[in-house]
Computed example of a mutant assay.
Amino acid sequence: MTDNPPDYELSDRMALSTAAQVKAIGHPLRTTILQLLHERAATVTELAAAVERPKSTVAHHVDVLTRNGLLRVVSTRKVRAIEERFYGRTARMFYVPAEPSPTGEEMPGDFNDFEVAARESATAFEQGKLWGFIRHARISEDRASEFWDRMAELVDEFDRMPRSGETVYGFAIGIYPTDHPTLPAAE
């Protein structure tokens, strides 16, 4: 597959290893900023225009993401004696690893991509434009892990797609244990 945007070098994946990183990525405006930077590097001014928020507000959120290692300055240019910074993501995909934090901190429990997806998808549902499936299967934990690896590849493919068209689509994917009933063993 051809490696498409963004227009700067970045890692494929980054584990969020501190509670501060998880909290930083959990804010809706910061998530939007990270999503925009999948397209290309951008200045605070460009990001503020895109999200229709004050430059000072966006600068604050960019600073939080930068302090937590999720963004970095990828290039600069001089504009009337002022150095303008272009920010980029440090990785295509951020994830919370299953193993405990190396610092021993307890990670926030409110980091739920499905909650964000449910909120974002409400309008699409009302307009009849929400495509989705939910399935349940009784499988081993090893099989669930293998399936997750395949889903992560699909997420990576989605992240690398060229940015085009007029509409930004959300893509939510996951696997989780449930308390659904199971049939007893066959006699």
Rank of each mutant, 00 (worst) to 15 (best):
M1W: 00
T2H: 04
N4G: 00
P6E: 05
L10W: 03
S11V: 02
D12F: 01
R13Q: 10
M14Y: 06
A15R: 14
S17K: 11
S17F: 00
A19W: 01
A19K: 03
I25P: 02
I25R: 04
I25Q: 11
I25L: 14
G26M: 02
G26Q: 05
G26Y: 01
H27D: 15
H27I: 09
L29R: 14
T31H: 10
T32Q: 11
T32H: 06
T32N: 08
T32F: 03
T32P: 00
L34H: 04
L36W: 04
L37V: 04
L37N: 09
H38I: 00
E39G: 10
R40W: 00
A42W: 00
A42P: 00
E46S: 09
L47I: 15
A48E: 03
V51Q: 09
E52R: 08
V58Q: 01
L71W: 02
V73P: 09
V74N: 05
R77M: 03
R77D: 03
R80W: 01
I82A: 11
E83R: 12
E84W: 01
F86W: 09
F86K: 10
Y87G: 01
G88R: 06
R89V: 02
A91T: 07
M93E: 15
M93I: 15
F94E: 11
V96R: 15
V96H: 04
V96Y: 01
P97L: 08
E99N: 10
P100V: 04
P100F: 06
S101C: 07
P102N: 06
T103F: 10
E105C: 08
E105K: 11
E106F: 05
P108H: 09
P108W: 11
P108T: 03
D110C: 01
F111W: 15
N112S: 12
N112G: 03
V116D: 14
A117Y: 11
A122D: 13
A124V: 08
Q127R: 14
G128H: 05
L130K: 13
G132F: 05
R135V: 11
H136W: 10
F147G: 08
M151I: 07
A152H: 00
E153V: 03
V155S: 04
D156N: 06
D156L: 11
D156K: 08
R160Y: 01
M161E: 14
P162C: 03
P162Y: 00
R163Q: 07
G165N: 08
E166D: 14
E166Y: 01
T167Q: 13
V168E: 15
V168K: 14
Y169T: 10
G170R: 10
I173E: 03
I173F: 05
I173T: 13
G174C: 07
I175W: 04
Y176S: 13
P177Q: 15
T178F: 04
D179I: 06
D179L: 13
P184D: 15
A186C: 07
E187I: 08
E187G: 14
E187V: 12
